[in-house]
Design a protein around this nucleic acid. Structure first.
Length: 406
RNA sequence: GGACGGUUACCCAAGUGGACAACGGGGGCUGACUGUAAAUCAGCUGGCAGAGGCCUUCGGAGGUUCGAAUCCUUCACCGUCCA
């Protein structure tokens, strides 16, 4: 790829709200790429992820894919785990402050982050770092120096703070420091490029660049990507909203969760979380618009494509087959957990013993609601004693094969 | 430090002495329907027991009362405003 193609490739899919910012960033990126080619020094590219929970999800992979593209072009990627910043909590686009996490919790969450990230990133070309390593060492005078580059008004003007200010809701002082610490990360890493979601626009474009400038560095280039909506199709994907698709799950679960997204967000998913080429995405969207592509088939393609990038083609095929069997044909899956029958056991006993339900009351309720089947026949009475060889189905998704002891 | 307000089930939130296992919404679950785990509609959503009974729950502890989520005391935590 020549430089212009590289710029196009790297700017593809970015979103800045204000197109002027995007153009400015593209120009700077081009300069930086030219320079890198001349000196032979790869660009330092980073994105930070706050370990506020144990799971990375599809939403995180949007920026990770962008990092991956930089890797493909030979640049150096820093996968920054925000062990320090997550203690503060990013106030971006939140209307509530987040409770402070404990240090232990953060470290526990961070433990498998890198591992999960390597499902997208190239481990060979990725450096993992933790911002607690340097942020915890910051001295007060340095923090003051950083803070003196900003005014309270600049922060209050941000929508997330503004809303809270008007609503008389608390804005804690430490929340102001989040963007500063992020800026310090960029400074510490001597980053050329910082990748993040559009909600990071202020943190990256205003805060980080200003901090770097204050340190006499060349400000990093911001690459901001659109936010991926969650499975509700409305709000941004996040664990706390429960509308997320984790990376660390089963292929079947991932496939099914993608199938549950509303039709309207299929194009965004195609654009942000598949490996499809732009013309492929365009064909997909056009197919949906002209209705030459059936929405169900489209979603199946999407689910298959997404699942296969994380688990491989074979697993995606199997997940698809299972989905068709279970939900389109209403059949029983090929494999399922087994339960060794103890004589005298009732359906109720088994449901509870195998933790298919949390309590006997819940089991009773399910039976009343006709949600429990034995070999496809609705169970009317929890006291029924199943025979070995039968299949117990609870709800749509939970299956158990009852086998006899040998 | 002062004034006022708050703490209710997974989340938001009503309830201010009995009819409260606690309105309503969200979420979740089940069923019907379907192209999907979408949308829509209906039901369920503390536990134990099963003909309607018992136990635990409304920040913690104690008290008043035949009876308390509701009143009193006290403790803890939180918020807004004023300093």
């Amino acid at each position: 790829m020549n430089i212009d193609e590289q710029v196009d490739y790297l700017m593809q899919g970015t979103d800045y709200g204000d197109p002027a910012i995007g153009e400015a960033m593209a120009v700077e990126l081009r300069e930086r790429l030219v320079e890198s080619e001349k000196t032979g020094k790869p660009l330092k590219v980073y994105a930070g992820y706050d370990p506020t929970s144990t799971d990375l999800h599809l939403g995180h992979t949007v920026s990770m894919r962008k990092l991956r593209q930089f890797q493909e072009l030979g640049h150096e990627v820093y996968f920054l785990i925000g062990t320090f910043t997550s203690l503060i909590g990013d106030p971006s686009d939140r209307d509530k402050s987040r409770p402070l996490l404990s240090k232990e919790k953060v470290l526990e969450n961070a433990r498998t982050y890198a591992e999960q990230a390597f499902r997208v990133l190239d481990p060979e070309k990725t450096r993992v770092c933790y911002n607690g390593d340097w942020l915890a060492e910051l001295k007060m005078d340095e923090i003051f120096r950083l803070a003196s580059n900003f005014t309270a008004q600049q922060f209050i003007a941000r929508e997330s703070f503004h809303r809270r200010w008007d609503a008389n809701e608390p804005i804690y002082l430490h929340e102001f420091f989040y963007p500063l610490t992020q800026g310090f990360d960029a400074h510490h890493l001597e980053a050329d490029v910082q990748v993040g979601g559009t909600d990071q626009l202020f943190n990256i474009v205003t805060a980080s660049r200003k901090v770097m400038t204050a340190y006499g560095q060349k400000p990093n280039i911001g690459i901001t990507m659109p936010l991926l909506p969650g499975t509700d199709g409305d709000q941004k994907m996040s664990k706390s909203l429960g509308n997320y698709i984790p990376i660390n799950t089963t292929p079947e679960d991932m496939y099914g969760k993608v199938m549950s997204i509303p039709d309207k967000v299929m194009p965004i998913y195609a654009r942000l979380v598949t490996n499809w080429k732009p013309d492929q995405v365009n064909r997909f969207e056009a197919g949906l618009e002209t209705e030459s592509l059936h929405p169900r088939d489209a979603k199946m393609q999407l689910a298959h494509a997404i699942t296969s990038t994380f688990y491989g083609l074979e697993a995606a095929d199997a997940a698809q087959t299972q989905f068709v069997t279970l939900f389109q044909k209403g059949d029983v899956p090929e494999s399922m957990p087994e339960h060794v029958l103890v004589s005298g056991e009732t359906v109720l006993d088994i449901m509870l013993g195998e933790r298919m339900v949390e309590s006997r009351s819940q089991a009773r309720r399910l039976i009343e609601q006709q949600g429990v089947r034995l070999d496809g026949v609705t169970v009317a009475d929890g006291a029924v004693q199943p025979e070995a060889g039968s299949v117990l189905q609870v709800g749509k998704r939970r299956f158990l094969r009852i086998i006899k002891a040998d």
